[in-house]
Amino acid sequence: MFEFCADPKAIEGLQWMMCYLTTGKHIDFYLSFGTVLLLLAITAPVALAFGFGGAMAARSHFAPLGLLGKGYIAMVRGVPDIIYFLFFVIALDQGIEWLTHQVRCPDWSEPIRQGLEFRVCPEAKVPHSSSPAIIHSAYNFGLAIITFAIVFGAFAANVLYGAMQAVPRAQLETAESYGMTPRQVFRRILVPQMWVYALPGLSNLWMILIKATPLLFLLGVKDIVYWARELGGTKTQAFAYPHPDWRLWYFLFLLVFYLAFTRVSEIVLSRITTRLSHGQATAAGEMLRKAGAR
């Protein structure tokens, strides 16, 4: 990056540090923060949508749909996350390849499963083996988002299900007495009011999701924890910038990042809580009303 970085072994002190912190590997490290933030930005709404769908299905009076929603919640909540991240992703990946194999290579005679091996025809590889590395990364990232969304969606579903049950019956009854259809009651009364009950649970999930991002590496996505471990490890003279074990410093940096990030989240979430409590028939809503009346 800087001109004086051409020969790293000849420089020292501040210059060495500046060069060291701007190597290609460090740039990858800085970019991986973007990867984590992007994952969170996409996963959170998708998981919320999964949760909403799950909660609606679980509440459904149509028995198969109700069973499906409750089954989804019970399954995912009952199985350790790490099993999902190891098993589900492989199953999903192989499922996709199996389907493309059926479509693109109908004449393939060899079995797909050979002992421990999973072997589809080369045309059915997803992504194709000659695709550039960026496509492979994007594919892994996509799998990661789906997996995170399914896991966190189940927890969100349970939170939203509880929140929907918590909206006072009197509110819904009033709406009905005004002649609203069940659909209108759901959309105009139930959903707007349930958020305040759902928020503590959802904010918990958000915090857990932030802290779960290091699981990304299990899915082949190089996240900040991977790079911190990789950059911090002892570097011998085989590297341009040899140094002793600096993992402590890298992980301290991650500690600061995660603490700052969760702190900002807390502030934002508490503001949302205040906003949603306005005019609610809850203790928090009552407090806001009294404060306003004074």
Partner: peptide
């Protein structure tokens, strides 16, 4: 489709001097 198959080589990238990620990230 007809283009030569790319062979993907899997390594650990953490075992110098056999294989490691250099300072350029390669």
């Amino acid at each position: 489709i007809a283009a030569a198959q790319t062979v993907r080589l899997g390594t650990e990238g953490a075992y110098p001097p056999f294989n490691f990620i250099d300072d350029a990230g390669q």
